[in-house]
Design a protein around this nucleic acid. Structure first.
Lengths: 335, 335
DNA sequence: TGAAATTGCGAAAACGTTTAAGTTGATTTT
DNA sequence: AAAATCAACTTAAACGTTTTCGCAATTTCA
């Protein structure tokens, strides 16, 4: 690696002057600066990130806390899609992405310690167990943090608008004439609670009666669980006319069960998913779903974090709510 | 951040001694070392990665070159699953994962320059355009590299055994009594060429005649393309009895087309996928496919890379071939 | 018992940057 | 014409480590 020192020698100036030229500082003549920059380029110079970080305590590196252990967050299209757009946007702004784990070079450490060690300028947190104390410690630190789909005090957050979205979704289904709507929901998380609350509230506002047996706990990304839940629902004497699933992928379990019983979607029963991933658009019939704008979520997260990093004086931890939209497929029948 | 210097003061020793104690060096008494380590722990010390890297030129950081631009590698389950297991294994060995892009802090640079800047100890390359000169430059450098599903000279590689796998797959189908086997294949890549060659060779070895119209170019992860290809195949006067798809996900397009024509899988026509992702196991009928061991691929890639990094003297760039296996679902009928 | 080897520790240089402070020589101000 | 300002550059310290070398004090050996 060619260093600033070698450039200095080549140009017959001091290392300070080279540094100034490269950083477009003021107290250097434009001619010298240009000359230095040209030779630096010719010599194939690129700054040593470590030395820079050491001196400036700026790493141009964003830590990403994403899934922990062997869980499959990376293979969940909603999250991997967020990660993808986040990465694009962050790279555009000149930041690298590093996964934050709990050990490094053999030493066990907390997430915060890891970030400190690496000198991360900021951290994005998604798809983790937010009740983990090690996560709380990180959020409470002075490192800029933005969380996705979870709200901490005094911490930037990008939130898919689950409350409004569920409202829209239920009203859409209601508008199609459905009065007996069932909800197979995911594990107990903040997101699930929001969707559930909104499901109940919207139903009540519409004057719908939601019997307890129409709300069943399933699981995210788990077709087996939704298959079982679907069977329970179909076995009821008063069947629902429409079933909401935790997400598009887990809907597949419901689809199988419905077809197994010789019923047809949407003629015999209507269904909707949640997420709006690619899969739902290629299935037949096309899955009606609530499309979460994962691209926007990733991009906004990156922007918010970069703002927090680069303008700490004016930055106030914002919460940005990203609207979803009902994506109309062919799985909800007009009654 | 507490530094080595502060520990030295607290213990009344020199920074050199602290460093030695922390690194379990030999020329320090066990008692002093222990005393230093205890106070270091009490004070919440963690090493500054930048300073360390600067001094030792070891970063404990692995660069990952994965998709570039807006392509969707991250949302392809085969690749995201490899990334996931790679990440787990690397973290286990004490390495962080950083995505390598082409700019950093505003400066455009090549992949190699990026790696040099960050001081990556090694690089894993997957799911990129391997003909990109910037990739070649990186591979040709002195930084340890392992590629996935692609072979460079003098560079470690983990390869899913496409040749043997395709052989197994075709023989499995043949064993089920099929004699007219069609292949919808993906875009022209090294992987595709291997699968195609093996498809032809195995067919010939089995004495099968493969008419040109039974081999159609589709695309990976693209149900639309396989839908079109399927229509072409079904329109033939002499239909195939079994269709191979580029991957499990793109099979969905074929499935739709087959059902649209009122045909049934596998009674009217048999199908197989490739990859063995979760999706295929939850569809009904379960998709018979060639399961690529993405976990093993990620893990072996990490192991090989770590070996290249930590034992440069004894390391020889290996190619590790990971066998796949026919995963028997219910989409191939016994004729 | 004296020389040689060993043990335990510290001083200081080095890694590649950035930056505050200092030093010129030239130019402007009074 | 002396004083003040300014532009352009250099010196040197600092960031937090690791590591070579040197120096005592102690132990071992002949």
């Amino acid at each position: 690696m060619v260093t600033i020192k070698q450039i200095a020698e080549a140009c017959g100036v001091s290392v300070a002057s080279v540094s100034k030229a490269l950083n477009h500082a003021t107290d250097i003549s434009v001619e010298t600066a240009e000359r230095i920059r040209v030779t630096a380029h010719e010599m194939g110079y690129f700054p040593n990130a470590a030395a820079r970080l050491l001196k400036t305590s700026r790493s141009n590196n964003i830590g990403v806390l994403f899934v922990d252990g062997t869980s499959s967050g990376l293979t969940h299209e909603y999250f991997s899609s967020i990660l993808n757009s986040f990465k694009e946007e962050a790279e555009q702004s000149g930041y690298d992405i590093t996964f934050i784990s709990r050990n490094m070079g053999g030493r066990k450490m907390s997430y915060l310690e890891h970030c400190r060690s690496r000198g991360c300028d900021g951290v994005m947190i998604a798809s983790v167990d937010f009740s983990n104390p090690s996560v709380a410690e990180l959020v409470a630190s002075n490192i800029p943090v933005v969380t996705i789909d979870y709200l901490f005090d005094n911490c930037g957050a990008i939130l898919s608008d689950n409350v409004q979205s569920m409202n829209d979704l239920v009203r859409y289904i209601y508008g199609k004439g459905h009065r007996r709507i069932a909800f197979v929901h995911g594990e107990d998380t903040a997101v699930t609670r929001n969707r559930l609350a909104s499901f109940y509230k919207t139903s009540r506002d519409l004057g719908l009666d939601i019997p307890d047996e129409h709300v069943i706990k399933g699981a995210y990304h788990d077709p087996r669980a939704s298959g079982l839940a679907t069977r329970q629902l179909l076995d009821l004497s008063k069947r629902p006319t429409c079933i909401l699933y935790p997400d598009d992928f887990s809907y597949i379990g419901g689809m199988n069960e419905i077809e197994r019983q010789g019923l047809s979607i949407p003629d015999d029963i209507s269904v909707v998913g949640y997420d709006g991933i690619y899969l739902g658009r290629v299935l037949r019939p096309k899955l009606t779903t609530l499309r979460q704008d994962s691209d926007a979520i990733g991009i906004q997260a990156a922007r918010l974090l970069v703002e927090a990093i680069e303008s700490p004086r004016t930055y106030i931890p914002k919460r940005v709510v990203i609207p979803g939209m009902v994506w109309e497929g062919d799985t909800v029948k007009q009654l």
